[in-house]
């Protein structure tokens, strides 16, 4: 072949993104509810229920309340969930059951554009969720502005990273039930052990090392820094890790989908 994968991506991928947006708009009122209520539930449960038990948390040299510790992490988790579940279950349904990708591939769209459109859509859902949660959490005063606005580009970066790995799994699973494996072996451990609900320092040393491989660790850490307005150069390493993760899994997702769909 004369062409490479990258030359098959034009901005026509936005047509795929637009298709998903159109479907989303049909039920946006319902889609808006989870990112609106979820942080409320967590903040109430942990703020009212757990704070008394936990007290204050030692974070980067200062004492902060437990609720303000977990609030940015909730945004990080939501960024992960929204793109990952979009490019796994939702994309898989479109690809496998609805044959939406097959129909698209009979038009001037390339496979690369279809997959890119899906991943970028996943990141868009992360962005929407993060934005709604930011508004809710801001009312409790846990986000400092204008630094907090950096959470929005962070949602896109995190969305691309988790959307890419989600699409990679969509390219390799035999059936939709098999998504349980990456969810329980990858997503759930990250949800619990990425410095989300307790500081990483509470873990044994080896577990801390392992946690640094989790993209959510870095996403959470960045979400905290942006929420508290603690911007410093070392954050570049964490951004770099998320970028690296995307640069690896984005082409891998395209490769696996190509092997799966193009026969």
């Amino acid at each position: 072949m004369i062409e490479t994968s990258s030359t098959r991506i034009s901005k026509r991928f936005l047509r795929v993104w637009q298709r998903n947006l159109k479907v989303y708009k049909k039920s946006w009122k319902i889609s808006f509810i989870p990112p609106f209520l979820e942080p409320l539930f967590y903040l109430i449960a942990f703020g009212v229920g757990m704070s008394g038990l936990v007290g204050e948390i030692h974070h980067q040299g200062s004492q902060i309340s437990y609720v303000s510790f977990i609030a940015p992490a909730l945004i990080g988790v939501s960024i992960m969930y929204n793109s990952f579940f979009e490019t796994t279950y939702a994309s898989f349904v479109r690809m496998y059951y609805q044959k939406t990708f097959d129909a698209m591939l009979a038009t001037p769209l390339s496979l690369e554009e279809v997959i890119t459109g899906e991943i970028v859509w996943g990141a868009t859902k992360s962005l929407i969720a993060a934005a709604i949660m930011m508004v809710v959490i801001s009312f409790f005063g846990f986000i400092r502005f204008p630094e907090g606005l950096l959470l929005l580009p962070l949602a896109i970066l995190g969305g691309i990273a988790f959307g890419s790995i989600g699409m990679f799994f969509s390219g390799i699973v035999a059936n939709i039930e098999m998504f349980n494996l990456p969810v329980f072996l990858f997503i759930t451990p990250m949800f619990l052990f990425s410095g989300t609900f307790f500081p990483l320092e509470n873990l044994p040393h080896w577990a801390q090392q392992a946690a640094f491989l989790f993209p959510l660790t870095h996403l959470t850490s960045l979400a905290r820094a942006f929420s508290y307005g603690q911007i410093h150069l070392s954050l570049l390493w964490e951004i770099g890790y998320l970028l690296l993760f995307s640069i690896i899994f984005f082409p891998l997702a395209i490769l696996k989908m190509r092997q799966r769909l193009i026969k």
């Binding site: 026509r12 047509r15 609805q98 939406t100 001037p108």
Partner: peptide
């Protein structure tokens, strides 16, 4: 026209054509 039904079940009759037209710019 592919053999398997690949109409978009998330969209209406009209939207199916509208969205498909966009794939052709």
């Amino acid at each position: 026209c592919q053999q398997e039904n690949s109409l978009d079940p998330d969209l209406t009759v009209f939207q199916n054509l509208e969205v498909f037209a966009r794939y052709f710019n």
